[in-house]
Design a protein around this nucleic acid. Sequence first.
DNA 1: TCTGGGGTCCTAGGACCC
DNA 2: TCTGGGGTCCTAGGACCC
Length: 418
Amino acid sequence: MTAGPSILHADLDAFYASVEQLLEPTLRRRPVAVGGSARGGVVLAASYEAKVHGVRGGMPGWQAARLCPDLVFVRGHFDRYRGLADRVMTVLGDFTPAIQRISIDEAFLDVSGSVHLFGTPASIGARIRERVRAEVGLPISVGAASTKHLAKIASQVAKPDGLVVVQPGREREFLDPLPVGLMWGVGPVTEQRLADRGIRTIGELSEAPGTMVERLLGRASGATLHALALNDDPRKVAGSGRARSVGAQSALGRRRPTPELVRAVLSHLAERVASRLRAKGRAGRTVTVRVRFAGMRSVTRSHTLPGPVSTTLTLTEVAERLVWHAIGKEDSSVEITLLAVAVSNLTWQQAVQLELPLQPEDPWRPGSATGSARWALDRSMDAVRTRYGRDAVGYLPATIGRSGGVPDDFRELAERDV
DNA sequence: TCTGGGGTCCTAGGACCC
DNA sequence: TCTGGGGTCCTAGGACCC
């Protein structure tokens, strides 16, 4: 097998922000933040004009506004992003059927079988960029190399709006001077740990003893990162597969955890999680909640049930007990800022299966009759929602905190296939 | 008027079983 | 009298990615 640069990584630049500039020409060449505001909330994406001022996705809006006084905050057209990204993927599909889409706005392409039709990987990368710009109107960066990992680093280096090809035999020359933070799996914490050992570049990491790297970063990630730095790509095709968990969370501002608030938020979250599970014919045995306190400290509690669950009420009840367990030892004046509910340990659940395998001694046993009634109720509410929309029916005041939160369109965009 | 929402994977300790 | 070794599952926390 020749190791030519036959893997491409194509990555739309500042995707959400670029779409906003495409839809609204007056935003072009201006610093744009999607989401948040100068007074609060969080920036979901920033245009390159904003990034040069240090604005980043995930940054609180007030901080972004301080870094970049001219920043324009827009709400975002979340209903448009999916369709535009799909059109880009269709363009990519014209060059090879061997595509692995890894998120809404990026994909790997294996073009080893396409060179007869379209020329070298470098020229394919150039044509992709031209066509996406001409036909969709968005900037896209492309990296080409002999492995996925290298192609992904190359596209990062190519940004914004560029093309970088790593020629075979010149991998070390390309990698050595780059900062370790460009590697997949190296975030701020790992970067700092390596810097403390004097390791800042991928070349320096490749020269460090493997045992030292593993001791520093843990056995698994240490070994993987060291191998990647040596350009010995151990990653098999990332078998995306089905989701392993389904969750939902909601930021609350600073709130006293009253029983009413906790119950209302959890039933809302449980409803979102459980209805997604039911829609896909799945259920899960492990329920995990997360409580975040003022000051960003957070605590998780989980419980594994004897049988899989996908009913809203049962999930709500289990989650509620877990949340109080998590809050239990806190000061009585404690404030919470976020609640999250997730279900994992997923199994398939045929349309007729109920929550029956629960053991009598299980404290959260819904009881078989109760369980089947709940499940039937959920299914009929699912049907109503399918016909009349998400908010047509619901448990309790599921409408709490609608005002401050993130749009539902964004939540749907972030959901993955269950 | 201090920080979103969706996920994945790894580690470590303890329980439990054979 | 003393106390193996491997495997699996569960729980809690944390880093990271898009």
